[in-house]
């Protein structure tokens, strides 16, 4: 399995707003607290965004749009990642991408 890393993805996301997935230390607290229990939310999605794995982000679009933005993860995050805003910016990015 191969993955294409594109630093431009995170840069493009930062032009849309205060995008901070690099603050994530991948502890998994967010995934454990998610009411939806989707394993890619939000930790793996944030990692994919930080690494610029655009193919992964496109494949995970359904999970990204399923997020409730309820902030349960954000209030528990020990690193203080602005998770809900990061997810919202990812949606904005994906909508622009898919609308092309």
């Amino acid at each position: 399995m191969t993955a294409t890393v594109s630093p431009q993805v995170a840069d493009a996301l930062r032009t849309l707003g205060p995008f901070d997935p690099e603050v994530c230390m991948s502890c998994g607290t967010c995934t454990a607290t998610c009411p939806l229990g989707i394993d890619v939310l939000p930790r793996r999605v944030l990692r994919d965004a930080a690494l610029g794995l655009e193919d992964h982000l496109l494949a995970e679009a359904e999970a990204i749009f399923s997020c409730l933005l309820c902030r349960a993860c954000e209030s528990a995050c020990p690193a203080g990642v602005h998770i809900s805003e990061d997810i919202r910016l990812l949606r904005r990015y994906l909508l622009r991408k898919e609308a092309r």
Partner: peptide, 10 residues
């Protein structure tokens, strides 16, 4: 602050 979502947003 630890409330649980109702599911409505999705």
């Amino acid at each position: 602050a630890r409330t649980w979502c109702c599911g409505g947003p999705v």
